[in-house]
């Protein structure tokens, strides 16, 4: 079992053409995501009700990856069909799924760093920044996997390049909001543990626009209405 799992993950990372089926990929996303999420939620230690945060975060990281993919896939399917790439869609979907599995695997591999960070710094905002950096690293690595799998497709038909960009655009657009909605991942040390934050229902983009607008209007020397 362990050797099988190892071979699966190893094949995934090395870009083996057929590294396991859908079930195996799903298992990798869930297990890898849970491993990182569990560490992620342990920023305020394990005392009191904090183990609950560990559990919540462990559930949320795989959810983030899986639900974002599920929401972005239908339009991806239609657009692929329209561009005449339907015959390649199973392969494209496998590439996208492999990228999700890669995110999870890389995250799990980075989890020890996060644990070490938590052990050395108790600052909440630094913890968030560090996790952002870990997610960025995992996304970059997964893009590598995705591009490698897409290389064969692009060689067959250059229109796959446009589809790859479209996928990344839609995935990022949905993923950012999904991450926002599923907060808290790290969990403020001064607040009780909750699965969703009370004020979580909101829109990440609106928040960013608001912040940008406030920064602009309150800039010294600027006089906006």
């Amino acid at each position: 079992m362990t050797t099988l799992a190892f071979r699966l993950v190893d094949g995934l990372l090395r870009g083996a053409p057929a590294a396991g089926g859908w079930g195996a990929g799903l298992a990798v996303v869930v297990l890898g995501g849970m491993a990182y999420g569990a560490v992620m939620g342990a920023s305020a230690g394990l005392g009191g009700d904090r183990p609950l945060q560990v559990l919540f975060s462990a559930v949320k990281v795989p959810l983030l990856l899986l639900v974002t993919t599920a929401l972005a896939l239908p339009s991806f399917f239609v657009m692929n069909s329209l561009l005449g790439l339907r015959a390649d869609f199973p392969e494209a979907a496998r590439a996208v799924a492999a990228a999700q599995a890669a995110v999870a695997v890389v995250l799990a591999a980075l989890a020890p760093y996060t644990a070490l960070w938590y052990a050395t710094s108790a600052d909440y905002h630094e913890a968030i920044l560090f996790n952002v950096a870990m997610f960025a690293a995992a996304s970059a690595a997964a893009q590598w996997v995705l591009r490698r799998r897409y290389a064969a497709l692009v060689a067959r038909d250059p229109r796959h390049r446009a589809m790859l960009r479209a996928w990344l655009g839609v995935y990022a657009f949905v993923g950012v909001q999904m991450g926002w909605v599923l907060r808290p991942f790290v969990g403020r040390p001064d607040r009780p543990v909750t699965f969703f934050r009370d004020d979580a229902w909101g829109n990440a983009y609106v928040v960013v626009l608001d912040l940008a607008w406030q920064a602009l209007t309150r800039w010294p020397g600027w006089s906006f209405p």
Binding site: L71, Q177, V181, W201, G202
Partner: peptide
């Protein structure tokens, strides 16, 4: 599905 998700989570 994307619209539904944003509609569900966005108040703006």
């Amino acid at each position: 599905p994307i619209v539904a998700f944003f509609s569900l989570t966005t108040t703006s």
